[in-house]
Amino acid sequence: MAMLTLTLATATSGLPTPRTSPKVRLCGYQLAWSDEFNEASIGNWRLDGKRWTAHTPWAGDFGDALFTDPGPESAFTIRDGHLQITARRRPDGKWTSGLIAAADETGAGTGLTEGYFETRIRMSPGSGTWPAFWLFSLTPRSDPRPKIELDALEYYGHDSSGYYASWKVHVPGNKQRERGELQRIPIVPGLLSARYNTVGILVTRTRITYLFNRAVVWSAARPAELDTPLFPLVNLALGSGYSIRNTPDPSVLSVDYVRLYSPVPRGTAAPCVPDGD
């Protein structure tokens, strides 16, 4: 996430927004993996047969809330086929919340080199929250190659009129070589907490395309360093430099599903990706 120091170049203006861009049909893709959250399948630091781990594979936590392990007192609950990640303040004044990552530090996990990644989520209103849906390189923690981060949605609760999308190249031990682009996506104020919305990234051989409710909101060239699969993460962090003094207790991120679609071989018939909005 953005806790790492990066110099980000803002993308060009005049791009379509969710208000003006028509929806697109995603054809030629088949469902490769999904979690519909009918049960909690979350491990601790290792997958151990689960779909998710409860910490990032490389560093653990970030932000102003401790990411909890799975269990009865964790941030994770399943309700009516939705995963709820809840940030709450403990009696000692410290906050806890949660993250799920479809990989662990050994390089085990689920990812795609090319394909469409999508989630359907809803946020609770309030300042100080920092939820995100993002992708990261599926490699062992010890792999010396640059790591790629694609942020489909990075949201700051004090500003309900937009969110951020980005791509970043992280170079272990050499921050001077790190680079990326950042784009603010304007939306109807309050939309992310008023209803569920779909957020997706389409990764092809040459481009990365960002979608909101299946409308294209940004596109960028695929970084040359992206030569490994990418796995998804979803989190409800707090802070990122913004005050959490008035953050609602509790605050909840609700996740309906996470789905990965892979391209079918050329000449193979495949239905279009169902509209999840």
Rank of each mutant, 00 (worst) to 15 (best):
W45E: 11
R46D: 13
R46I: 10
L47K: 04
L47D: 07
L47C: 06
L47R: 04
D48G: 06
D48I: 00
D48H: 10
G49I: 10
G49Y: 10
G49V: 10
K50V: 01
R51K: 15
W52K: 08
T53M: 06
T53Q: 02
A54G: 13
H55Y: 08
T56P: 00
T56R: 00
P57C: 05
P57N: 01
W58H: 10
W58M: 10
W58R: 09
A59Q: 09
G60V: 08
G60F: 10
F62K: 00
F62Y: 15
D64E: 13
D64A: 05
D64G: 02
L66E: 14
F67N: 03
T68E: 12
T68G: 05
T68I: 03
D69Y: 13
D69M: 14
P70D: 00
G71I: 14
G71K: 08
P72E: 10
P72I: 00
E73H: 15
S74G: 14
A75R: 07
F76Q: 08
F76R: 05
F76I: 05
T77P: 09
T77A: 15
T77H: 13
I78D: 11
I78E: 11
I78Y: 14
R79T: 14
D80A: 15
G81M: 11
G81N: 11
H82A: 09
H82S: 04
L83F: 06
L83Y: 04
Q84S: 11
Q84M: 11
Q84H: 15
I85M: 06
T86C: 00
T86Y: 05
A87P: 02
R88P: 04
R88G: 01
R89C: 04
R89N: 05
R90I: 00
R90S: 03
P91Q: 03
D92P: 03
D92F: 02
D92I: 02
G93Y: 01
G93M: 01
G93E: 01
K94P: 01
K94A: 08
W95G: 01
T96G: 01
T96H: 03
T96Y: 03
T96M: 05
S97G: 06
S97T: 08
S97Q: 04
G98S: 06
I100G: 06
I100P: 06
A102V: 03
A103P: 09
D104Q: 13
E105N: 12
E105G: 10
T106W: 12
G107N: 14
G107T: 11
G109E: 10
T110M: 10
G111H: 09
L112E: 11
T113S: 15
T113I: 07
E114F: 14
E114G: 05
E114S: 13
G115P: 14
G115M: 13
Y116D: 12
F117A: 08
F117K: 03
E118I: 13
T119G: 12
T119R: 08
T119E: 14
R120Q: 13
R120H: 12
I121M: 15
I121A: 15
I121E: 15
